[in-house]
Design a protein around this nucleic acid. Structure first.
Length: 516
RNA sequence: GGCCCGUUGGUCAAGUGGUUAAGACAUCGGCCUUUCACGCCGGAAACACGGGUUCGAGUCCCGUACGGGUCACCA
């Protein structure tokens, strides 16, 4: 069995597909509460509705929890002392308990056809016809093989008070409680019943549920009482909404956890963000690792009111996580995205990653930002005009010519090229002069910056006046990650010169067209 | 409709009877600068409403409004 004073929590999803953000948060809180108390976190699969079963969904859940770092101590694939952890494998247990309640008078067999019973529950204050059946008789019928469901015999008077760690005391008049079905005709338990049985049998001390269950909570209490079981701590968490009026739902295209990962969000960032939806640690800090959350999590910080899932803020969190990542790690993560957009093997993934890291919100944004490294698209020469940098087309042409000349001169005198990936190659046919001249340099960011800034100085213009046209020429787009220097560096000397040449030709053609 | 729950800026939120009502995202302005971003500085922006209780109420009580949940042999 399990330790008596052990704090035990469970995440109990039904395997119906990918995991919602709300589910993930519930799992996270359950995990945090268990770990904070050095307790046990359990995964239980609630698959009692075979009609809604989705093939492979259990695997998805397991994979998702692993991916998120929410390691469970007991569960279907890892076992544990109170298994099985899949409800469909516990059918006998529920049947036994349901019959026990019938025998004790807390529940009764119902022989109504399912649709008939449905009608009964909809019309208020109408008793199910089977409620009054004598136990002996209904037991005989059930034993004889007549199909039946089991319903709870809800009290008609009094009230039930539920104590919840988040919502406090919630009192409900018993007369509005219906005779909820415990066991369905197919012998499977309902969620309500299986949940209570399993939570008790598995020693769950803190029961986490979404607020949609709070109106059922009195019925759970009645069930616990009927069995003479101790009622666990209830922790009811409010919903996560898409906007002021709608809750998050897959139907409306709200992203699942998996969707978010596919969109280039980091698991850590999503988890961190989700933790703060409906819960606050109280201070000003917002960025926490999972382990830190375990340390500081407290049920008292859980909010009663629902929270809106704001993707903008998630983006910010994701950006924060990207920025604080070690550069090598980020390069590894971003590598595939970069390679997909920039096929040219000579272009360094690491160098592009370095440019991207401080200005990226999510990985899927990468391709849109760096396509120009791969191919220089045709662009409007109007891009060369930039008031703030004091550049018009005439000046741009002048600047490009000067830059080209400068880069070429260097080549002629034996420029050694340092590729962005760190490999050095000989330029200019390997005619490096022994001893080297003063003009012999490496094609590095520092060198290019030096060349361009001293050129600007020589021409008597601001850096921006030179940098702007160069950047436009080598990229062909108005907005680029990194500046002229970095882009030239990454492209390499040869490609840089080629693109500058293209820019010059375009501007000259423009000029000619203007004259005629 | 019955029952239950909620309501602090556009959003997440701190606040547990006395505060100039934090902070974050988004937004706007500025600085930095080689475009963008990062970073830094600053602005605008909130206690749903009405009654109580109290010397004093975002905080406690009642009501109203609005929003949500639930009322399945779904979970």
């Amino acid at each position: 069995m399990f330790e008596k004073n052990d704090v035990r929590t469970r995440f109990a999803p039904s395997p119906t597909g990918y995991m919602h953000i709300g589910n993930l948060r519930t799992a996270l809180y359950a995990y945090l509460i268990a770990k904070k108390n050095k307790g046990t976190f359990i995964l239980r699969i609630e698959d009692t509705d075979r009609a809604r079963l989705v093939e492979g969904a259990t695997e998805i859940i397991i994979k998702t929890l692993k991916n998120a770092g929410l390691v469970y101590d007991e569960g279907p694939d890892v076992g544990g002392p109170v298994g099985p952890y899949v409800q469909s494998e516990r059918k006998e247990i529920y049947g036994r308990h349901a019959k026990e309640l019938c025998a004790s008078g807390a529940a009764y067999y119902c022989f109504c056809a399912s649709d008939e019973a449905g009608l009964e529950t909809n019309s208020q204050n109408t008793d199910d016809p089977c409620r009054g059946l004598p136990y002996e008789e209904s037991k005989r019928r059930a034993d004889a093989g007549e199909p039946f469901a089991v319903r709870m015999k809800a009290p008609k008077e009094g009230e039930t008070t539920v104590v919840d760690m988040v919502f406090g005391e919630v009192t409900t008049p018993n007369k509005i409680l219906d005779d909820m079905v415990l066991l369905k005709r197919d012998g499977m338990p309902t969620y309500n019943f299986a949940n209570v049985i399993d939570d008790h049998l598995m020693g769950i001390t803190h029961v986490l549920r979404g607020s949609e269950y709070i109106s059922s909570a009195p019925k759970y209490n009645l069930l616990y009482e009927a069995f003479g079981w101790e009622i666990p701590e209830y922790i009811t968490v409010s919903m996560i909404n898409r906007d002021a009026h709608n809750k998050l739902s897959k139907r409306h295209g709200d992203p699942t956890y998996n969707d978010l990962l596919e969109q280039g969000y980091l698991p850590e960032a999503v988890l961190n963000f989700v933790a703060l939806l409906g819960w606050s640690p109280g201070g000003e800090r917002e960025i926490f690792t999972l382990d830190e959350l375990v340390q500081i999590f407290d049920v008292s910080g859980i909010s009663k009111s629902p929270a809106v899932f704001d993707i903008e803020k998630l983006k910010h969190f994701n950006g924060e996580y990207i920025r604080k990542m070690p550069p090598e790690e980020f390069a590894k993560l971003a590598g595939p995205y970069i390679r997909k957009a920039v096929k040219n093997e000579h272009i360094s993934v690491g160098a592009i990653a370095a440019l991207l890291q401080p200005r990226l919100e999510k990985l899927s944004d990468i391709p849109g930002k760096i396509g120009f490294f791969d191919t220089l698209r045709e662009y409007d020469t109007a891009l060369f005009e930039h008031q703030k940098s004091k550049v018009d087309k005439t000046i741009a042409l002048e600047m490009l010519k000067a830059a080209k000349n400068e880069f070429e001169t260097l080549t002629a005198s034996g420029l050694r090229e340092a590729r962005a990936d760190g490999l050095q190659v000989e330029a200019g046919g390997g005619q490096t002069r022994a001893g080297g001249s003063q003009r012999e340099i490496l094609w590095t960011n520092e060198a290019i910056y030096g060349i361009l800034t001293s050129l600007a100085e020589k021409l008597g213009v601001k850096n921006a006046a030179l940098m702007w046209p160069v950047r436009i020429a080598v990229s062909g787009v108005a907005v680029t990650p990194g500046g002229a220097v970095e882009i030239c560096h990454i492209l390499g000397r040869e490609e840089t010169l080629r693109r500058i040449e293209i820019g010059i030709k375009a501007l000259q053609a423009d000029q000619k067209a203007q004259e005629t």
